[in-house]
Each structure stands twice: as C-alpha cells, then as structure tokens.
Amino acid sequence: MKSRHLSKFVWAFIIFCTWVGGFLGIYINGKVTGDYQYDLAIPIIVGTVLALIISLFFSHRRKKRNGKVPEIDERTVKIMQRYLMIVLYVVLFGSGTALIILYSMGVQFIETGMLIICLLALYMIIGLGAFVAKRL
C-alpha cells in the first residue's frame, strides 16, 4: 500500500475511533442518568474535524519549511526506545509497589474514579516524557 493511501486510512481510522468513543460516552452517560444528550454529538464531530484541519495545517507547514528532511532519525528512535523501556519498568514496579503499600495499610477496595485519575496522570507524564525525549 502506498504511503499516501496508508496515511488517509490512518486518519480515517483515528477519526472513526474518536467518534465512536464520543458517542459511546454519550450512551454511557445517558444510560446512567436516563437522559441521552444527543446535542453533544455536534461538538464531538466539529472538534474532531477541527483537530484534523489544524494537524494537517501544521504538517503541511513543516513539510513546506523543511522539504524532504525526515522528522526523526536513528538517534531519536534509539532514545525513544530506551525511554519507553525505562518507563515500562518504572510504571510496572511503581504500580506494584503502590498496590502493596495500599494493601499493607489495610485498603481493600479502590474506587474506579481514582484509578482513572491515576491512569490519566500516568499517561500525561509518559506523554510529556516522550515529547521531551523526542526533542533531545
């Protein structure tokens, strides 16, 4: 498959998954509250399309400015591999240690909302670290 067709397929898949996730959120929220707010579909669709346009604009601008210079090289790939391997073990052992400490303190149940917040914080820290590692 050519790179151009693959790129279009990837963008279509990302947009589809974003829309499915948004509508699934509307459905779950409506199932809990009993009120399905379909007017939230407009911001989901408009936000996704707007994000696509902004991303394509910056991609086109970078390509116009830098020409055919690749965005990453072998050194960047090696740094990212090393960073992600370290993060894998830190998150694995850190989460295990946190659970052992909580269990030893007598905590028997963990609220799902707190788990979501912890995972969100982990994703944000890992993403910021990957961004910094890519820029090194």
Rank of each mutant, 00 (worst) to 15 (best):
C118H: 00
K31R: 10
I86E: 02
W11N: 15
V132D: 01
G21Y: 06
K68V: 06
V49Y: 14
E71P: 00
F23G: 04
G30M: 03
Y103S: 09
K64D: 07
K68I: 11
W11H: 14
M105W: 14
A41R: 07
L136F: 09
I116D: 01
Y27H: 09
M124W: 13
S95I: 06
V20Q: 03
L102G: 03
K134D: 02
M124Y: 12
S59A: 12
F58H: 09
D73S: 00
Y123G: 04
Q37M: 13
I117V: 11
V91R: 00
L119N: 06
K31M: 10
G96D: 14
K31N: 12
I15D: 04
G22D: 11
S59D: 13
F57W: 13
R75S: 13
F23N: 01
W19A: 08
M114A: 01
L92S: 08
G96V: 07
V49N: 10
L99S: 07
N29Y: 11
V91C: 08
Y123F: 11
D35N: 15
T18W: 11
M114V: 00
V91W: 03
G67I: 12
Q108V: 12
F57N: 14
G34N: 14
E111P: 04
I26C: 07
Y27R: 04
I72V: 14
Y83V: 00
S7P: 00
L84I: 00
L6Q: 15
V107W: 10
L136R: 06
V49T: 14
Y36S: 01
Y103G: 12
V132W: 06
L102I: 10
F13C: 08
A98R: 07
F9R: 12
N66L: 14
I53W: 05
L50H: 06
T97F: 13
S95D: 04
L119M: 12
P43L: 11
S3M: 07
I44W: 06
I100V: 13
I110N: 05
V49Q: 07
H60C: 07
A41L: 11
C17E: 07
F131M: 04
S3W: 07
F57G: 14
Y36T: 05
L122R: 07
M1W: 08
F57A: 15
L40D: 11
K2C: 03
Y27G: 02
I53C: 05
Y27E: 09
Q37F: 13
I117A: 13
Q37K: 14
T33M: 09
A121T: 14
R65H: 15
I86L: 09
I116H: 01
G127C: 10
C17L: 15
D73I: 00
I42R: 07
S3E: 11
A98D: 06
A121K: 12
R4M: 08
F57I: 15
S59E: 15
I14Y: 10
L119H: 06
K64Y: 10
F9D: 10
E74K: 06
